[in-house]
Amino acid sequence: MDTVKDALERTAATLSSSLGEVFADLGKTASAVVDAAAAGPDLPPRSEFAFLKAEFAGLIRRHSGLIIGAGIAFAPGSLAGSPQWLEWWRAQPAEEPRFVTHDLNPDSLNYYDYSTREWFTLPVQTGRPIAVGPYVDFGGINSSIITLCVPALTKQGTHVLGCDLPLSNLEGSFLRALGIMEPTVVLLGANGRVIASNSPRIATGTLLADEDRAAIGTTLEVTPEGTGPLPWTLVALGA
């Protein structure tokens, strides 16, 4: 018989396996960055990492149902000639991904100081892969996303590779894997925000209300293979 626990385990397994594949791919590219940094000069120019364009294009293509963009944020001061450098690629229908321009001018109103964003600081601090969000990336994507991040530890500093996962892409696989409307099941991010739920009352991107938090019954952590546990939790309310 299909218990609530079965449904949660099935959903966790589906999410873990899709996310695990993306994390593994991102990890390979991170290793290539580490190798290139070790082989190059002490203060390499951007051109040392020109090979990443094709790497990210491949990554975006392989996971096109899930992610809409990927890229790398270099540790500030780690490249010759660029105090900060963010190289991000966005998927385009039936075309090669396009380069996303971010405003890296500190004097500008739209300055996108990635070195202060959580998706950059967390992997740098912990040295481990992590899923950040959901959050609305104003100045970046401008819609609610989760960023899967992997650090690349080099002699010049820690760069962060990441990819953007819109909540809308995750929702379908969550609902179909879960397959039940009762009881209410919620997938929570580390920041306590709702990533997905099967209840119309509990909307994505919002914080779980106190009375719902008090009703949490069965709980299961989502753990993709090869990485530590995500800070994600599946909870069933009242069961």
């Binding site: 929702e171 379908g172 609902l175 179909r176 879960l178 099967n198 209840s199 119309p200 909307a203």
Partner: peptide, 14 residues
């Protein structure tokens, strides 16, 4: 209205 729409969307997706 919004809850009603989301409920319809959820059941269609599932």
């Amino acid at each position: 209205e919004t809850e009603y729409l989301i409920a319809q969307h959820l059941s269609l997706t599932m």
